[in-house]
Nucleic acid binder design. Structure first.
Length: 117
DNA sequence: CTTGTGACTGTAC
DNA sequence: AGTACAGCCACAA
């Protein structure tokens, strides 16, 4: 599938920007956990920062933040409610199926950064 | 520089 | 399986 990766152009090597870059690299139909992303940017204990970075994310950036879920494979609550449902809809639109409890099968949809080359 | 907070994670009960 | 506590990093005031 022709995935559209068009956000890396605005990325700057800083702190949050690295997180955005990783999120942008997540292909469609795949999801990544905060801890996974945190490790990718060399911040194995910065899982919190990843979520905080997405919280501070602005609409100007085309970052698929909806592909980022917690370690339980579920959508975390945001500071401004209303978007948790929006995220699930976007993921379902990409082919991701949710569990009865509203959770994703990470063993099946978890994105692998170190695979296929 | 110190304090507070947050879209998290892992362990323990 | 769900709830509770502590740890961690980065940014704003």
């Amino acid at each position: 599938m022709a995935s559209g990766q068009v956000c890396v152009s605005n990325i700057v090597t800083g702190t949050y920007d690295e997180i955005y870059a990783v999120v942008c690299q997540i292909p469609e139909g795949r999801v990544a956990t905060y801890g996974q992303i945190a490790r990718l940017i060399n911040r194995p204990r910065g899982a919190r920062q990843v979520g905080y970075a997405l919280a501070a994310l602005s609409d100007d950036k085309q970052v698929p933040w909806h592909r980022v879920v917690n370690a339980q494979g579920g959508v975390s609550r945001r500071a401004k409610g209303g978007y948790e449902e929006y995220q699930q809809i976007l993921l379902e639109s990409e082919g991701v199926t949710f569990d009865e409890s509203g959770r994703i099968d990470l063993s099946r949809y978890l994105w692998r950064s170190s695979d296929c080359t």
